[in-house]
Simulated scan of single mutants.
Amino acid sequence: MENPSLWADYQITYINSFKALKEHMEGYRECCPTQVDHLSREVDGLVHRLVQGLEDQFKNDVRPYLRRMMTRKWLSTDEDFQQLLSRTEKLSQRCSQMRHPYVQMFVSSLHYYVVKEYVSQLMKNNYSCKNRKHDKAATKMRVQWDELNDLFEEMKTTHDWLHPVGDHLSNIIGEKNKRDIKNHLKHLVADYPDISKKHLSAVLYFRGLVRGREKQVILQCLTELKKKLGTAGNTGDKKRGLFIDMQVTIANTNCLANMPFSCLSSLLPDS
């Protein structure tokens, strides 16, 4: 694609044109309702493919930068995040020309993708904070999350339910006292009941809590909390599932050799 920006402008122009055609044809509904219904379905299908093309182009554009989140490089430089932010802002400017209701659906879909991919990097166990670097990581995550929230708010996302997850996770990562981490779980589970022990274990690994009794106590607290809140085995509203489709890479911590039962319990399904 020689000029992605120009291509995106063309796609948005086509979407707006089909929207105008659909509105114009509504004036003929009384005399030929069957034909208007058929045309409306055809137009919806065409617009869906055009919007999907825009989404795919954006995902391909930002995927390399998202994949480098939550790594040693991410902790030391803002380069990749700024690239993500810049590309999202540019698309936001173009989206302002897209007509309703397609613009809301498009923006909300992009919002979900960026949030999910950003958080998913925590699940890959690519990096574990050492020497109290978890505090620096949590601060950085909060700042970046605020920028993303502000940007998607400006774009008028309808997925405002995604906003709190960054704060919940950064609170866990930045907590100085390991024993107090469990105090941050209640709101996380209430907002995202599809989070599992595997997901939380990966977040704790990133924080630097790789193994040991304290980690197992936190994971057990999650299980008990999900039971208490009635979310055990519950993935919540499927339209609001965030963690359920996130794959978790199991880190090699050699814990089975040292703590066969407690470490193994973290790999078991949530009860």
Rank of each mutant, 00 (worst) to 15 (best):
S5E: 14
W7A: 15
D9P: 01
D9Q: 11
Q11M: 14
Y14M: 14
A20S: 14
H24E: 10
E30T: 12
Q35N: 09
S40Y: 07
R41I: 09
D44N: 14
G45L: 06
L50R: 01
G53W: 00
E55D: 12
D56A: 08
V62P: 03
Y65C: 01
L66D: 00
R67L: 09
M69G: 02
T71D: 03
W74I: 01
L75Q: 11
T77Q: 06
D80L: 01
Q82Y: 11
L85M: 03
L85F: 00
E89V: 06
L91A: 01
S92D: 13
Y102L: 06
Y102E: 11
M105F: 13
S108G: 03
V115M: 06
N125P: 07
R132T: 09
A137Q: 13
T139Y: 05
R142Q: 15
Q144D: 08
E147Q: 13
L148K: 02
T157Q: 05
P164K: 09
V165M: 00
V165P: 00
D167T: 06
G174E: 12
D180G: 00
I181M: 09
Y192W: 00
D194T: 08
I195C: 05
S196D: 13
H199Q: 02
Y205D: 01
F206M: 07
K215D: 07
V217N: 02
Q220E: 05
L222E: 06
K238A: 03
G241A: 10
T249N: 11
M259T: 10
M259H: 12
F261P: 04
S262T: 11
S266E: 13
